[in-house]
Design a protein around this nucleic acid. Structure first.
Lengths: 201, 201
DNA sequence: CAGCCAACCAAACAGTTGCTTGGTAGGTTA
DNA sequence: TAACCTACCAAGCAACTGTTTGGTTGGCTG
């Protein structure tokens, strides 16, 4: 049986939960909501999962693992600074398209979740990647492709937030292709942070 | 007694509630949390307010009234398109600084609240201002100050979201002045969307 | 002084929450 | 055929939720 097409019941329930968490927020979604959407009773969920919290945990940790793995590959590649920025941004938009629910949960609830012991790993990898980004941007500054009149920490936040915030309006399968969004965002972004004359159209 | 410096108990409670709503989310904040922070019992809140929902309502409607009033003034002014964009962005950052809690609640909970009848006015004025923005951007395009290779709807979302998302990390009274943030954001933004920043447009 | 009022307390209420328990239907394996 | 397994049901529990009620306090005012 190809696992890629056949979801186990457990995976199906996780997908249902993720969609609800994404659209209403974790706190606003009850275990009865999830059970209803799956066509079972709320207690039956506990045959598959320890708790509601562990569902959230599994959804977010799985997603973060995959995304940060992809980013790692890019960062470790031989691309130059500018190409890395572009590749990471495109990979992020790709995640926005293919794992929309997970990104939405991450954006809406992760900040609060991170305060608890259980979800500290979210913050850990976030901090780790902030360092990678900062090195990349400093590298770009040195290489003369990035303008130097900007606070680099602020540029990092700008690039990071600008991509993810699109989860609020972008809908997979909607009228606008994710590649189009990525193209336009990169156009604005790169001419905004690049040193004048260094970019090519 | 000057009212500008002395808050009524009611206003003080609203401020306390707003801070909690902002940091933990509306659904994640109980009336007992608010009462505890104010040093009273939860039931006593109902001497001042009809319901928890009406607290949220008052916080958001008051804020929206003020912000959109300021925006209205700018839009009706004689400034050119580019200056208007800049003025609105600066006014928004100013709101981010002076009404941080309200902006945070708006960013985190408004989307969900808008689905209910009571908070429909939030969506109404949002939609109304989207139209104003679109006219402004088209005006800028015609005047030749905006690059024409971008989807104007996407530019609108980009400008709007980029400003507000800063509520996630900006802290009033922190190490970075809001004017600095505004300056740098505008630098990136305007060279990103302006015609003069285009290479081989 | 009496009357009034804003602000609050103490105790409870009904509904909702996440979760537990003991049991069952139907399929697969030995 | 018996043992076992996955997936579920039915019922309920304790904790927590927003809210209500009747009463108390201390300061102000006529």
């Amino acid at each position: 049986m190809p696992e890629s097409t056949t979801l186990s019941r457990r995976e199906e329930l996780l997908r249902i939960a993720a969609e609800l968490f994404a659209s209403r927020g974790v706190k606003n979604t009850t275990v009865r909501d999830i059970a209803d959407a799956a066509g079972i009773l709320s207690g039956s969920l506990y045959h598959h999962f320890d708790s509601k919290e562990s569902m959230v945990d599994e959804i977010l940790s799985t997603f973060q693992e995959e995304l940060f793995g992809t980013w790692d590959d890019i960062m470790r590649s031989k691309l130059d600074a500018r190409a890395k920025v572009e590749a990471v941004v495109r990979a992020s938009f790709d995640a926005l398209d293919k794992h929309h629910s997970e990104v939405a949960i991450y954006q809406n609830d992760a900040a609060y979740l991170m305060e608890s012991e259980r979800f500290a790993y979210l913050k850990d990898r976030n901090d780790q990647f902030r360092e990678v980004w900062m090195r990349l941007l400093r590298e770009g500054e040195k290489a003369g492709v990035l303008r130097t009149d900007l606070d680099i920490e602020l540029v990092y936040r700008f690039v990071r937030d600008t991509v993810w915030v699109a989860v609020r309006w972008y809908r997979p399968g909607g009228p606008m292709a994710i590649e189009t969004v990525a193209d336009q965002y990169l156009t604005i972004l790169l001419s905004g942070i690049s040193k004048e004359g260094t970019q090519r159209g």
